[in-house]
Design a binder for these strands. Structure first.
Lengths: 350, 350
DNA sequence: GTGAAAGCGCTAACAC
DNA sequence: GTGTTAGCGCTTTCAC
């Protein structure tokens, strides 16, 4: 299987390991040029004469040559891989960013290497270490909070580091995202503007999800400084509709006057909506609900959910852009931070 | 930044590229052993004497050595990377599988390289080609349907290929998943068992999503052979609650007698549920709804959604297991196919 | 159990 | 514009 399409007397005593069948050298031989010309053609076709170019193209086609990126990465001391580390791709927010990055990077033939921290800094540390051993073109992390070791490793290294989905802390190099406390504040302001005076924040996994915590804090602070009643009701489990339902009934019990809630995200908000339905609490008349995320169901539920959209895809595209520009030799301004903002979508749940 | 922690007279005229600061050779020098011993220690610690082992361990620690997996991959002609190609990680089903794989593979220090086809065979072909150029330890594809070129490339290559999320077609090598037509049939049987006689399938993106189509076909066939009325209502857009609402009202208009629907997935089912709420159609009294996926909201909505759970995480774990076993030298039976089954969760929407 | 030697397939100076 | 040359950092025989 390994030896077809190759001159049979060429390398007679190459040791028989599982090797690549057709290499750049084979292409070069076939096209009657040197390997470096082939290499050059592959990376910068315009730098090669038209005639040589087309001969090489034909040879590649004929031999069915697939370049070995591993070898290329070793020789160039930097691979065409980008390492991205997120809490989990099960989370729709990060999935969207990963998908957007991948879709932009693939046009440049860059590969994404994925890692999941599951919200664990130790795990992140391991992931960063292995990521580094791939000599990636860039490494993308979620959030600004990392272990000291992680931070040290990353600072020592010449790979560009991009932190996503959070702004407003100490960043290693580039950061792309938004201020989560501003999200919380926007939700509070919106509810107050709607005449609500007894607020609560329904929070899920606030102890682990730093950004959800920031949104919560921003909410509480804005409410307090506006002089309205505000409370936090939370659950240690991950955000889900089930948790949302539980949190809302708990909140209602604690604050019978409750007339406005903001939620960790739209899953929680959806659960709150379901709970209102079960308890015949009319939304938004008796209670206003604001979510976060603008997930796929948010515009379709009853009533449609007022929510804050974070543009996770923009984050991914911007990250990809930074990486591509860096590879093109453009030296990025250090410590750059890009605010992708967010949008409050006022729908009928408030 | 590249030169610290290294003997300064050792390699005086190494050209100044962006190179790794501390290499295996540095570790060997420091530990007073040969590089091959270090290499051996790293891969099979038990094959090295205890004393040498601990000296090397200390050297690694001291120098803060991070192995270069790219170089290793080149020398070994196979990298510690697994390529996984899915339609999109935005889709919760594939996200779950990817997450499960990653979580299993990471214990073996294997990396996941991710690619998105966006349901495009041409794109898949490109992705497979680049995947191959990474000399991955294995390559994982979604579904059994690929372009001829893709299939040919994959067959010619010695990398293990695993196709996931579909069973029952012509497979390249290993396949892990379930029969989607059986899912459809199970939904139909369930509805009929509940006394429903006028069924419809609410399908999203049936022209692109082959597996959704199979579920639909299985549904229709089972219904027909049971002698009940059945219809298909579909929309070209991706599955969403919005589409679900539209499809249900369309179905209701076409079949006023309609008393049972199965949906492309739970997003569509949720939308149907919302539409019932808006139109005051009581579920399940007047209409039964069955979804697919058991997504995070499915148990929490009103009424809780009867659905079919596909165990996407099992698929991921099994794929990872196959790969790990293969790397351990275990020759897998060729053309193995693992049926991960599915479970119908009877909740109150039917 | 350990080391010497020979690459893996490619890139990037640099000379021509 | 093209070829020559010298590695990139590691793994893997094969002796010892």
């Amino acid at each position: 299987m390994a030896d077809q399409a190759k001159g049979q007397t060429e390398r007679p005593q190459r040791r028989r390991r599982k090797m690549q069948s057709v290499t750049m050298m084979d292409v070069a031989e076939f096209a009657q040029v040197s390997p470096s010309t082939v290499s050059l053609y592959l990376r910068r076709p315009e730098a090669v004469s038209a005639s040589a170019g087309s001969t090489i193209a034909r040879a590649i086609e004929k031999l069915n040559y697939v370049p070995n990126l591993v070898a290329g990465g070793l020789a160039a001391a930097s691979s065409r891989a980008v390492s991205i580390i997120v809490p989990s791709v099960r989370n729709a927010f990060f999935a969207e960013t990963v998908a957007a990055m991948q879709n932009t990077l693939r046009k440049e033939k860059l590969q994404l290497i994925l890692g999941h921290t599951e919200y664990d800094e130790r795990e992140e540390e391991e992931l960063v270490k292995t990521a580094l051993s791939w000599a990636p073109a860039a490494i993308v992390l979620t959030g600004l909070s990392h272990s000291d070791t992680t931070r040290r490793m990353l600072q020592k290294v010449s790979v560009p580091v991009i932190e996503i989905w959070e702004l407003g802390g100490q960043q290693i190099d580039a950061a792309i995202g938004f201020h989560h406390d501003q999200v919380g504040a926007a939700a509070a302001k919106h509810l107050i503007q709607q005449g609500r005076r007894n607020l609560a924040y329904l929070g899920a996994r606030l102890h682990e999800d730093r950004r959800a915590k920031q949104r919560c804090d921003g909410f509480v602070e804005a409410a307090k400084s506006a002089g309205v009643t505000v409370d936090i009701v939370q659950h240690p489990a991950a955000a889900s509709a089930e948790v949302g339902g539980m949190l809302l009934s708990e909140a209602l019990q604690a604050l019978p006057q409750l007339d406005g809630v903001a939620c960790s995200n739209d899953h929680v908000a959806l659960g709150a909506l379901f709970e209102c339905e079960r308890s015949s609490i009319s939304v938004p008349e008796r209670l206003s609900i604001v979510g976060f995320g603008d997930l796929s169901f948010s515009a379709a539920c009853n009533p449609p959910l007022t929510t804050i959209r974070p543009s996770g895809d923009l984050i991914g595209r911007e990250a990809a852009r930074l990486i591509i520009e860096h590879m093109a030799g453009k030296d990025p301004e250090p410590q750059i931070s890009i605010d992708t903002r967010f949008t409050l979508l006022h729908r009928r749940s408030s």
